[in-house]
Computed example of a mutant assay.
Amino acid sequence: MHHPEENPWKITSAKNVYDNPWINVTEYQVINPSGNPGIYGKVQFKNIAIGILPLDDELNTYLVGQFRFPLNQYSWEMPEGGGPEGTDPLESAKRELLEETGLKAAQWTEIQRMHLSNSVSDELSIIYLARELTQFEAEPEDTEQLTIHKIPFAEMYQMVCNGQITDSMTVAAVLKVQLLLLENRL
């Protein structure tokens, strides 16, 4: 009998179909769990997705707005970016927070790890809560045209509840922080 946590997929061949500095796409010929032949495409990310929810002493946070090319729409989200695999994700988080908002934080807490689209990719996300904030000058990358808004965390929570924020890392971070606040764990 097959144990439920054992891999039921059998790979018969793999072909690299696309590669760039950020992702690799592989097409696999497989025998699926029912024993039939099939194909499976996998997007392998070369960076870890990093998200930072900055929260000041008055429970204000910072929204980053930008046009997201893959979605072809504007998106409001927490500061986010990536860090190359093999590097310290916290250092990547510190860099991203400074780049996008000009903020530095004295206190960092990892609050969530999650896979963002596990049906087609292996992308790992690490989300941090950043506290004890100090404002400096933002240093956005040349690919970023950002709008930054400082708002009460309660307002950001309502934006998640109302569907105005749809970015999965931001939704997860806001719901986690709301839970921590309700449980008096912050």
Score class of each variant (00 low, 15 high):
I111F: 05
A130L: 05
S117W: 10
S125T: 04
T109M: 09
V120R: 03
F136I: 02
L103V: 12
L180N: 12
L129G: 01
I148W: 10
I148F: 12
E137C: 10
L116F: 05
E132I: 12
V174L: 11
S121W: 02
K176D: 04
V171H: 03
K150N: 14
D142M: 10
S119W: 00
E99T: 02
L129V: 07
E123C: 07
H149D: 15
V120G: 03
E141I: 04
P152N: 04
D142S: 07
E100P: 03
V171K: 07
L181K: 02
K150A: 12
P140T: 06
L182E: 14
M159V: 06
A154S: 13
R113D: 06
M169P: 00
V174K: 01
E139Q: 15
A138P: 15
Q178N: 12
T170G: 03
Q145P: 00
E100R: 11
L133K: 08
G102Q: 11
I151Q: 12
E132R: 12
S121R: 00
T166M: 09
V177T: 11
N118F: 00
E132M: 11
R113E: 15
L133A: 11
K104P: 01
Q112S: 11
I126M: 01
T134K: 15
A172I: 02
E110N: 09
T101F: 10
D167R: 05
A106V: 00
